[in-house]
Write a protein that binds this DNA or RNA. Structure first.
Lengths: 140, 140
DNA sequence: GTATGTGCAAATTATTTGCACGAAG
DNA sequence: CTTCGTGCAAATAATTTGCACATAC
């Protein structure tokens, strides 16, 4: 993986993209690795990380770093936002902003040239709302 | 640090809060540690992490996990948003949303009970705009 | 005086990388 | 065939933790 361009299509690479194409699926590298192993038993975690990094650098997937030490990856490259569960760390897509909200069009703030923006909503997912006040879940 | 409540005020704990009170200051744990060592030469990195975690759990500071493997910490607990430089990872506060933007008031999306939301703007900070197209900086 | 907090060092977790072999083009 | 990619294992980087001593209250 000398430079940053994708040169070859390997089964590993193709499968990573294919699996990440599911909607509302934002796995960590380790979760993705477990998924992939069912179909490519000899794949290694290093290969998963190398390919994720390559796909991110080529703009084919996105890396999400939010509220956890582990990165998550998102195959949906269309503009959208996320909602994350504070309790179980589940993450889902939000394709349209809530009523009355519009995407900011501004190009400069505080001297920065603005390239992009994200919303993140934080809350309790449907499952965690139920067993809510059952104390903190995994607090990773 | 048996449970989650702050029991005692130690010089280390007081100094961490005091240093984090500066505006537009969002250091990583390691950066904060270096800062603190100038005034408390014997402080340890473990103590910094333990106190940051405790302060976060008590709502006295915020932890920011965005676009990097290192967490940053923010002493400003008033509602605000951030802009982050893609190149040098500098991060600044945005206290008011851009013209036309309002804070979402919605309480539920996709079955989640919404507790909070953040905007993050991403762009090039003033310094990096200058030496821009000078290729990628530290890509941490 | 006692429980909580600290410093230190070792442990853990997530991610990255060197190297020899394998496979895409 | 040649270069790029993979598996494996070891290396790094960030964060957490066990333990004996120190200190806030």
């Amino acid at each position: 993986m000398a430079n940053g361009k994708i040169q070859r299509i390997t089964p590993q690479r193709r499968m990573i993209q294919e699996v990440l194409d599911k909607p509302d699926y934002h796995p960590t590298a380790a979760e993705l690795y477990e998924d992939l192993r069912r179909r490519l038993p000899r794949i290694s975690l290093g290969t998963v990380y190398r390919n994720l990094d390559l796909l991110v650098r080529n703009g084919l997937i996105n890396k999400l770093d939010m509220g956890s030490s582990k990165s998550r990856y998102d195959g949906n490259t269309k503009k959208h936002h996320h909602i994350r569960c504070v309790s179980c760390h589940r993450m889902d897509d939000i394709n349209a902003l809530p009523a009355g909200q519009t995407e900011p069009q501004i190009k400069e703030i505080r001297g920065y040239r603005i390239l992009d923006h994200h919303f993140e909503f934080v809350g309790l997912c449907p499952s965690c709302r139920n067993r809510q006040n059952a104390g903190e879940e995994k607090r990773l």
